[in-house]
Design a protein around this nucleic acid. Sequence first.
DNA 1: GTCCTAGGTGTAAACGTTTACAAGTCAGTT
DNA 2: AACTGACTTGTAAACGTTTACACCTAGGAC
Lengths: 324, 324
Amino acid sequence: MNGSSLVKSESREAVLRAAQQLNYVPHAAARALITGRSRTIAVVLPDMHGEFFSELIRELDQCAHAHGQNLLVTSLHGDLAEVKQVLGLIHGQVDGVILMVPFNDARARLAPLLMTVPTVLLNAPGPINGCPAVTVDNAGGARQVVRHFLSMGYRNMVHIAGPSGNFDASERARGFRAAVKEAGLPVNRDIPGDYSERAGYLAGQLIASRSKRPRAIFAANDNMAVGCLEALTEAGVRVPEDIAVAGFDDIPIVRFTQPPLTSVHPPIAQQGVEAFEWLVKAVNRKPGEPPPSGPRERPLPTTLIVRGSTDRRAPARPSAQTDR
Amino acid sequence: MNGSSLVKSESREAVLRAAQQLNYVPHAAARALITGRSRTIAVVLPDMHGEFFSELIRELDQCAHAHGQNLLVTSLHGDLAEVKQVLGLIHGQVDGVILMVPFNDARARLAPLLMTVPTVLLNAPGPINGCPAVTVDNAGGARQVVRHFLSMGYRNMVHIAGPSGNFDASERARGFRAAVKEAGLPVNRDIPGDYSERAGYLAGQLIASRSKRPRAIFAANDNMAVGCLEALTEAGVRVPEDIAVAGFDDIPIVRFTQPPLTSVHPPIAQQGVEAFEWLVKAVNRKPGEPPPSGPRERPLPTTLIVRGSTDRRAPARPSAQTDR
DNA sequence: GTCCTAGGTGTAAACGTTTACAAGTCAGTT
DNA sequence: AACTGACTTGTAAACGTTTACACCTAGGAC
């Protein structure tokens, strides 16, 4: 017995010593079978691209270590229907699930599937079946960008939208629109996009070709902002003197673009912690107890990082001397 | 019985239908206990930073899906001794292990621990206890850089080394030295580094301050190359006109530095596939059979990506129109 | 009609733990 | 010396599957 119970301390020591010698390690499956605990958390992501994924995993790995848990990572290669299959595959092998579902229709499509295992949703449009959702304040981030634009005197702004159906993207668009309207400015029609660098590039070309250009551009993610920046530069448009550009996500490369890109930094690490902590609580609660209170209802705040693409005076990229 | 055996097809159908209705899912732990197979592979990495980690995970996730396996991801937070603990935690929960151990002394320190579970080593200095090692041709990559430098007419080269004790780093240094020597050129002493951007920055400052500057710099990784580039630029050294700079890893940001950085592209995806394929074979073999032949003994070849930091004439960064 | 065979079905053991419980030991108290 | 109590130790059931095996049924051959 590796736990603690009612054995004399010396006999326990003897057992442990023997175990050491025989190279004995308890069999996880047998243990999981009888205890009903696998000490493992599943992380299910819609895809494994971008910095979001790696930073999240990194953070969750930290949490897992701290709680003595293992991390089972998997991605949804196909449809959301695959969630069912994944949850099945995972049953009995996992105590809880962290599920990222950044889709507007997540509720309708997931509701029938969630109930077997304690689950935390990431970037979902809201709690589903009592599973809490840990979200980022996308709208707030967009608002920060608009406020920054206003403070710089940029009044004619346009948004390059993310893929329709994506919850984060529509929140960013919504926040942008609301903030512009609140400022009493006319709202330009969004330029459609799909988060790809190429979409941003095309959007940039489109904007550069217009006779009436906006003063500032807010792209729904950094990928598109980078593509847009490139198109503008190629077209001879000066950034930020002629047009300012801001993105969302604060991915590593934005420090290196010419000029460096202003971007909204999402609280990914914090998200990971909140999701994990709640999950651990939910998994460990006794059958009688009520589910733990949600991991703060409100979305987690973002941070605006101002760089040269919106403000010429922004401090140069922090040199390697001090960075990190 | 979900497998196939000797039941009439209609009774099987009936069973499956009932299972569907009752929302039955087999219990993974119980199944693992009796079959001795968990359909899960562990991935153990020394740390979760950098692009290497995310690309590898992404690739392994693909492989895992293709083979109907799950992926248990964990990192070594402390010493290599933690490997033992990790392998213990994992016993019975995992059929095989992909273990990254880029340390020169891996053999000595790991040999006593490896034998319980089929294991593939990643970037290890060689096979250990019959566990094959899937490695990158670091020395070959360094050689490619030197050959490129020579073709550009750069004859006075210096290497910014990676952390001592790191296998990849020492292989890169070795390959560099060998190639320079083969070319009949004198070998400059390496500038010490630790893979950090700051170390590269300091190295760059050091080089810029020397009276006799080298014509070309090969940094052991891109991080350092980026830092070095920054220091050189700050010091008023023109790249590549005065000094050329090349890195290793081909991380995403090197496309965006000023000028874009020449770098050695490692075959990470291929590594993942080879490691996984071998592991699956090893796990599925019958007790009698011999272990499958190693996943090609020789290290996987790298690709040199020439950019503006070593060759002014290099094509500009492929535009977003065509990239990806 | 009996026997054999083939194909299908039900039963029970086993996987390696945990945990509850019964049984045992020993010292201290009356 | 016997009883009580506090500890310790051994035993057995249970977790949810798989798999081997014995059993049963039906159909064909002699």
